[in-house]
Design a binder for these strands. Structure first.
Lengths: 236, 236
DNA sequence: TCGCTGCTGCCAGAATCTGACAGCAGGTCC
DNA sequence: GGACCTGCTGTCAGATTCTGGCAGCAGCGA
């Protein structure tokens, strides 16, 4: 196995563990000595991987994605830059910042000439006109990532308010509004919720009992089937 | 110099040349023997770099970006995926395809677990409702990249049509429309053109005499200055 | 205090990379 | 056709890098 492949493997193994893992364990897993493992960890850290080691405990990898060397065509990089610029203009500030960070991260590792090309990518995104929602969508995204139940107050199209406890699994971005898709515990059905009609968002910390991938798949199947209605806007 | 850094350098040098470069030249440039150069080229090709070698001529790199190993946080990868999904829904088919390709390329090099996470990134983009423009925006983007003059027929808000020859340097994406920003040769001023009002697009193949970066900068300065009007919609 | 762990320096052996040479194939130019 | 340039592959010895084992220091918790 080549060294670069081994490094990717190492990240992968670290990623599987939430608790700290000892260097000894990691070294056994990838089949090298403990000494080489320390060198590999140092190399990965040098490449920007957020690996933290603590004496007496072990190593933890902050959640993240490791990409190997990659080649993009001009149009592909244009697409990525344009897309990230669009995200960078979203009202969801944390996500917008992440998009900007990602672009900066890519630019940082590029040679000067390529960086200039990136800056000069002349695809622009117009300003957004609609009002931002009152809630922090970052909380919704976090709840989706962690598969946690979410409580909030919802005001439907008619103006009637209701308290909700849901299992969120997707967030859809439309031109004007953002919509959370979730399984509603009270109604026992899929519902979608416009972000600008939600308030009093509260993460419960309680893990919901299904996988978000499975729920997404089921919801999509419901959308395709002609005899079903899929998710309804949460008025009922 | 480490081998990986050398490979990045090699791509960079190849990128500077539009004409084929001989292996001998490249080998001298990065300070290795011709034999090692062949090995490096093979390695790069193995990593997906579109380098083409022809006997009697030399090497050419198709336009593209090489990224070294890179680490992204969860939110950063969410932002990139969401952005690319948005681009993938643009009416500009070539750009949309490029966005899809870029995502596929990223997914292809990831270990299974990470790929699943990527697929399951539950940020969705809603469908686009507005009508697509009649022209192929890919031609506009190509003209911008190559800094070539562009001819077309423009129908302004009042319905009056006029023939135009412009120096395009930017393309702006709004919710409903896409707008090309260019220097208009006839009016001798910056103008912007709604893509849905353009027709009969024709690349001239003639390079315009300024750099697109410089024009973009000047145009932006015009937008900021309160006493100037920046680009006007091309009615005059 | 002890045990566990991260981390670094050192050094010899293993693995890889590199350069030189030879040879073949495909193109251009005369 | 012939001379020449170039890409590409095989082989092999020497240079370089990587690796594993050992020793030692430091931080943390019991």
């Amino acid at each position: 196995m080549s060294r670069s492949a081994r490094l990717l493997d190492l990240v992968q193994i670290l990623r599987r563990h939430r608790r700290p893992v000892s260097g000894r364990t990691l070294a056994d897993a990838i089949g090298v000595s403990i000494r080489t493992l320390y060198r590999d960890i140092a190399t990965l850290q040098g490449q920007g991987a957020p690996i933290e080691g603590e004496a007496g405990l072990g190593y933890v990898l902050k959640p993240g994605f490791m990409l190997p060397p990659l080649m993009f065509t001009d149009e592909e990089i244009e697409a990525i830059v344009l897309g990230s610029r669009w995200v960078a203009k979203q009202p969801d500030k944390r996500l917008a910042a992440a998009a900007a960070d990602a672009l900066a991260k890519i630019a940082a590792v590029l040679p000067d000439e390529l960086r200039d090309d990136l800056d000069a990518t002349t695809l622009l995104v117009g300003p957004r006109s609609e009002n931002a929602e009152a809630i922090d969508l970052g909380i919704v995204r976090q709840a989706i990532r962690d598969e946690r139940k979410l409580g909030f107050l919802y005001r439907d199209a008619g103006g009637a308010a209701s308290k909700r406890l849901v299992w969120p699994f997707a967030l859809a971005f439309f031109d004007k509004v953002r919509v959370m898709v979730a399984w509603c515990e009270t109604r026992q059905d899929f519902r979608h919720f416009r972000a600008d009609r939600m308030s009093g968002l509260a993460t419960t910390g309680i893990r919901y009992p299904r996988r978000r991938q499975a729920m997404l798949k089921e919801w999509r199947a419901g959308l395709d089937a002609p005899d079903r209605n899929g998710a309804k806007d949460a008025s009922g």
